[in-house]
Amino acid sequence: MATATPPAAATPGEFAALLSQEESAIGQFVTLLQQEQAALTAGQVDSLDALVAAKNPLVQQLNRIADERRYLLQVAGFTNDRAGFHGYLEAHGTAEMRAAWERLQSLAHQAQELNGLNGQLISQRLQGASGALQVLLQRHQAGSGVYGPDGQKQAGTGSRLIDSV
């Protein structure tokens, strides 16, 4: 009966490569969030679909990388959280890995802030659209047409110019 061999502990080089992948992916994500914010600010809602379509694979990639990092930490005997990664860096990390981790943390913080601001911009846009829709619905309910579907004259439209004709 064969016994399962435990997975080999990850080398610092594997962790460095993983950090590099994560830093690249989150940098791309931040760029897309900045483009999203510019589109929202300028009212260019047509470009949002393409930005969302570009963000989704990056989110999946970031999740995959985070899962791999957690697995490598466990295999190396550390907890699979930030504290575990800090412990790994203290025990096996290089100056380059520590610098990459700091850059990664900064980018993650930037992404979190941008995402929150974009959420606020979207909320404001939705409130504005909802308010405009309410105004249109109220006008429609008050009798906004000169003639109804049956061809008969409707009650006043609220416009003196049209109602005086």
Results as ranks from 00 to 15, higher is better:
2 A>H: 12
2 A>S: 14
2 A>K: 13
3 T>S: 13
4 A>E: 11
5 T>P: 04
6 P>D: 10
9 A>Q: 15
11 T>E: 10
11 T>Q: 13
15 F>P: 00
17 A>F: 06
19 L>H: 09
20 S>F: 06
21 Q>D: 14
24 S>Q: 14
24 S>W: 02
24 S>G: 05
24 S>E: 12
25 A>C: 14
25 A>S: 15
28 Q>Y: 06
29 F>S: 03
29 F>Y: 15
30 V>R: 09
30 V>S: 00
31 T>W: 09
34 Q>V: 08
37 Q>T: 09
38 A>C: 02
39 A>S: 15
43 G>D: 06
46 D>F: 12
48 L>T: 10
51 L>W: 06
52 V>G: 10
54 A>T: 01
55 K>N: 09
56 N>I: 10
57 P>R: 07
58 L>S: 12
58 L>Q: 07
61 Q>E: 12
63 N>Q: 12
65 I>F: 07
65 I>P: 00
65 I>A: 00
66 A>N: 11
68 E>G: 00
70 R>A: 15
72 L>F: 10
73 L>Q: 07
73 L>I: 01
74 Q>V: 09
75 V>F: 03
75 V>N: 07
76 A>P: 04
78 F>Q: 13
79 T>C: 08
80 N>Y: 04
81 D>Q: 04
82 R>H: 11
83 A>S: 12
84 G>D: 02
87 G>L: 00
89 L>D: 06
91 A>P: 00
91 A>L: 07
93 G>W: 03
94 T>K: 03
96 E>N: 10
97 M>H: 10
99 A>W: 10
100 A>P: 01
100 A>L: 05
101 W>L: 01
101 W>Y: 14
102 E>G: 08
104 L>W: 03
108 A>D: 07
108 A>K: 04
108 A>N: 13
109 H>P: 00
110 Q>F: 07
110 Q>V: 13
111 A>S: 14
114 L>G: 09
115 N>R: 13
115 N>T: 13
116 G>Y: 08
117 L>P: 02
117 L>E: 12
117 L>C: 07
118 N>I: 01
122 I>G: 08
124 Q>C: 02
124 Q>W: 03
127 Q>S: 11
128 G>P: 01
132 A>Q: 14
132 A>E: 10
135 V>E: 10
135 V>S: 08
139 R>G: 13
141 Q>P: 02
142 A>T: 06
143 G>F: 05
143 G>D: 06
144 S>M: 11
145 G>A: 13
145 G>F: 15
146 V>F: 11
146 V>I: 14
150 D>Q: 12
150 D>G: 03
151 G>A: 05
153 K>F: 09
155 A>C: 01
156 G>T: 08
157 T>Q: 03
157 T>D: 06
158 G>W: 04
162 I>K: 00
163 D>Q: 07
